[in-house]
Amino acid sequence: MCFPHRALSSLLSLYYFFSPCCKMEIENETICSSGSSSGGSREYKVVMLGAGGVGKSAMTMQFISHRFPDYHDPTIEDAYKTQVRIDDEPAYLDILDTAGQAEFTAMRDQYMRGGEGFIICYSVTDRQSFQEAAGFKELIYQVRHTYDIPLVLVGNKIDLEQARQVSTEEGLSLAREYTCAFFETSAALRFYVDDVFYGLVREIRKKESMPSLMGKQLKRKDSLWRKLKGSLKKKRENMT
């Protein structure tokens, strides 16, 4: 199914506006979630946020393994690691795929404190998911007490254009409000999936290049992230 020309034009215009450096090189190397980055290379803690069923897990699986899952339970939280090269620099992404249902948000404060960058997802075929996405930045602020957090806003399922309920213009407007990059994607067809993760890493790197207490912040986040991953592991063991 072809990508709608109008949405493609808007997306590319915004992508180049936010991300002038567009060189991307993927290394198809997936690291098991219990491992650690090798050689002391930088590890980026990424959190996927969004309502259940918007395609967070499908996007993650397409990014790390180039495959679309046949089925995924939207109430299950999971974690993945993968190695890529972005602008000729290695990056190890530790991705937390969060559950969308409210009853599975007991660890929400933990992953909002521990995450370094957030991918906020909605489905262009589901207006309710867009309305929920609009509130995530405020939820992050309530935990972190700052709006200066690397974010990427994603409208998924553009392959279902005939069922679209949220226009490209509405997504662009919310991204401007959030002052963040915006992409429309198809996890099913793997359209612009890599761009989302690469764009977020670039935002994190941009923030790190500014003078700050980044070393102390990273050390604190490492501790929070380890506790979170331990809680997630226990939760999964209890469910099996």
Rank of each mutant, 00 (worst) to 15 (best):
Q142A: 10
V143Q: 00
D148K: 09
L160E: 08
A133P: 06
L172D: 10
G155K: 03
E170T: 13
E170Y: 10
Q131I: 14
A134P: 13
A133T: 05
T146L: 01
G135S: 13
D148L: 06
E116H: 11
R127E: 14
E161K: 04
C121V: 15
Y178M: 14
F130R: 09
V143N: 04
S167H: 03
G171T: 09
I119D: 06
D126L: 09
E116Q: 15
G117S: 10
I140W: 01
T146S: 13
Q128A: 12
F118V: 05
D148W: 03
E132W: 04
G135N: 14
D126N: 12
V166K: 04
S129W: 05
F130M: 07
R127L: 14
A133H: 03
E169N: 08
I149L: 12
D159L: 05
F118T: 05
F136H: 05
T146A: 03
F118Q: 07
F118P: 09
V143G: 00
E138M: 08
V166W: 04
E169A: 12
S129Y: 08
C121N: 14
K157R: 04
V143I: 07
T146Q: 01
I120F: 05
G155Q: 03
I140G: 02
S129Q: 01
E138A: 09
L151A: 01
A175W: 11
A163W: 00
E177P: 10
Q131H: 14
E138D: 13
A133C: 09
K157Q: 04
F118I: 10
L172N: 04
